[in-house]
Simulated scan of single mutants.
Amino acid sequence: MSSQFGGLAEQLIARAIEQPSFRRVIVPADLGLPTLTDRLSETRDALVSYLSELDLSTMAGLVRGAAMTELDYTT
């Protein structure tokens, strides 16, 4: 994967992390197998669903705005 896609993926994931549903605490009881595997699967499915419903026009505007103001992109 090129670094260009890595940066875009980072922006998409950052947007998802802002959502309360992706900020749940993992309790110690969920750290054992197979429960942890189940939680990872549920989270992956929720993330794929979230990303598939994301308004890409809005996201493009946010990424463009960040690119125009962040030092990494302006030098």
Rank of each mutant, 00 (worst) to 15 (best):
A16G: 06
Q19S: 04
D30C: 08
P34Q: 07
T37V: 04
T37W: 01
I13C: 04
L36V: 08
S21V: 12
L33T: 13
I13Q: 04
L33G: 00
D30E: 15
R15I: 01
D30G: 04
F5L: 15
I13D: 00
L12I: 14
L36H: 02
R15V: 00
A14I: 00
Q11Y: 03
A14M: 10
G7N: 05
A16C: 03
A29N: 09
R15H: 10
P20G: 07
R24Q: 11
R23I: 03
V25C: 08
G7Q: 13
D30N: 14
P34E: 11
R39H: 15
L8W: 01
G32Q: 15
V25I: 08
L36S: 09
Q11K: 13
I13S: 02
D38S: 10
P20H: 04
A16W: 01
L12C: 06
A14C: 03
E10K: 02
L8V: 07
A9M: 10
T37I: 12
R23G: 06
I13Y: 02
F5P: 00
E10T: 05
P20D: 08
P20M: 05
P34N: 12
T35L: 07
R24D: 10
E10P: 00
V27N: 13
R39Q: 10
A9F: 04
R23K: 13
P28H: 07
T35M: 14
L36D: 07
A16E: 04
A9D: 01
R15C: 02
E10G: 11
L8I: 07
L12R: 01
I17T: 10
P34I: 11
L31T: 14
A16P: 01
D38N: 13
L33A: 15
S21F: 12
R24P: 00
D38P: 02
E18K: 13
A16R: 00
S21L: 14
T37L: 13
G32D: 01
L8A: 12
S21T: 14
R23N: 06
I26T: 15
L12A: 10
F22K: 01
L12Y: 05
L12D: 06
E18R: 13
T35V: 15
A16L: 07
P20C: 11
G6S: 13
G32P: 05
F5T: 04
R39W: 05
L8S: 07
L31F: 12
G7K: 08
E10H: 06
V27S: 09
A29P: 01
I13H: 04
P28N: 15
S21D: 05
R23L: 10
A14H: 09
D30W: 15
V27L: 15
R24H: 06
F5K: 07
A16T: 03
Q19R: 02
R39V: 15
R24C: 08
L31I: 06
T35K: 11
S21Q: 12
Q19G: 02
D38W: 02
Q19P: 00
S21R: 15
R24W: 02
D38A: 11
I13G: 01
L36W: 09
V25H: 11
I13R: 03
F5R: 03
G6L: 14
D38K: 14
L33C: 03
A14V: 02
R23A: 05
I26N: 09
